[in-house]
Simulated assay, not measured.
Amino acid sequence: MHFIEMQATARAVRAKYAQVESERYGRPWTAEEIMLGFLGDVGDLAKLVQGKAGVRPRDDLDNALAHELADCLWAVLTLADTYGVDLEAAFADTMHALTQHLDDVRRSP
């Protein structure tokens, strides 16, 4: 799946969530509530990373880790969409800047 397809899929899933939220709560979640959900997902991801280190083992660890990483990516895509961030361009720019910074660090005594 290409990045643009990932964004479109994330947007479509967000729209479905908004429908369910409107039916259950009378309104869709705010960006702040989506962010809080993301924080919960990051906490779940942290526990799974501990599992990979042997601290919190579980039988379905690899599948759970893949699922949680995908949940986190969905939240990031959704927040970027909410705030009008061109995440693909921002990622490319940020990676370029980090690469330059790391190259500069390696060159300095």
Rank of each mutant, 00 (worst) to 15 (best):
E88N: 07
Y25M: 08
L87W: 11
E23M: 03
L61D: 07
K52C: 11
L87C: 08
A18M: 04
D71A: 05
D62L: 11
H2A: 10
K47F: 12
V20P: 07
V13P: 09
E88I: 00
R24F: 06
L69F: 07
V85M: 10
L87N: 03
I4M: 09
T82L: 06
T9W: 04
D62M: 07
E68K: 14
H67N: 15
D59R: 14
I4T: 12
T82R: 03
A66E: 14
L79N: 06
V20F: 13
G84Y: 05
Y83A: 05
L39E: 11
Q7W: 03
I34V: 15
A64S: 09
L65Q: 06
S22F: 01
A89Q: 13
F3C: 00
G40A: 10
L48T: 11
A66I: 01
Q50F: 15
F3M: 04
A8S: 12
V13Q: 10
A8I: 00
P28C: 03
G26T: 05
A80G: 00
M6F: 06
A12C: 01
G37C: 14
Y25K: 05
K47Y: 14
Q7D: 02
T78S: 08
E32D: 13
L48I: 13
D60M: 08
E88T: 08
A15D: 07
T78Y: 02
V85C: 01
T9C: 02
V42F: 06
D62G: 02
L69R: 07
A15K: 09
A75R: 13
W74S: 03
A80S: 11
R56C: 12
E23A: 09
N63L: 10
D60V: 04
A64N: 12
N63P: 04
G40Y: 11
T9D: 03
T9E: 08
A90Y: 10
A64F: 08
L77A: 06
E21C: 01
D60A: 02
H2G: 13
H67S: 13
G51C: 05
A15H: 05
A89S: 06
A53P: 00
A12K: 08
L73Y: 05
S22N: 02
N63Y: 15
A31W: 10
M35Y: 13
Q7P: 03
R11P: 05
A31G: 04
K52P: 01
R56A: 15
I34C: 14
P28E: 02
A89M: 09
R24M: 08
A90F: 07
Q19F: 05
M6I: 00
L77V: 06
H67D: 15
E68F: 12
P28M: 06
V55C: 08
G51K: 03
L61V: 13
F3K: 09
T9I: 04
D44G: 11
K16H: 11
H67P: 04
T82P: 03
W74K: 14
D44H: 15
L36D: 15
D86H: 02
T78D: 12
F3H: 09
G43F: 09
T82E: 14
A80T: 00
L79P: 13
M6W: 12
V85R: 07
E23G: 08
A15I: 03
H2W: 06
A8T: 11
L45E: 14
D62I: 10
R56K: 13
C72D: 12
C72H: 02
D44I: 11
V42W: 09
E32V: 11
A89P: 02
G26Q: 10
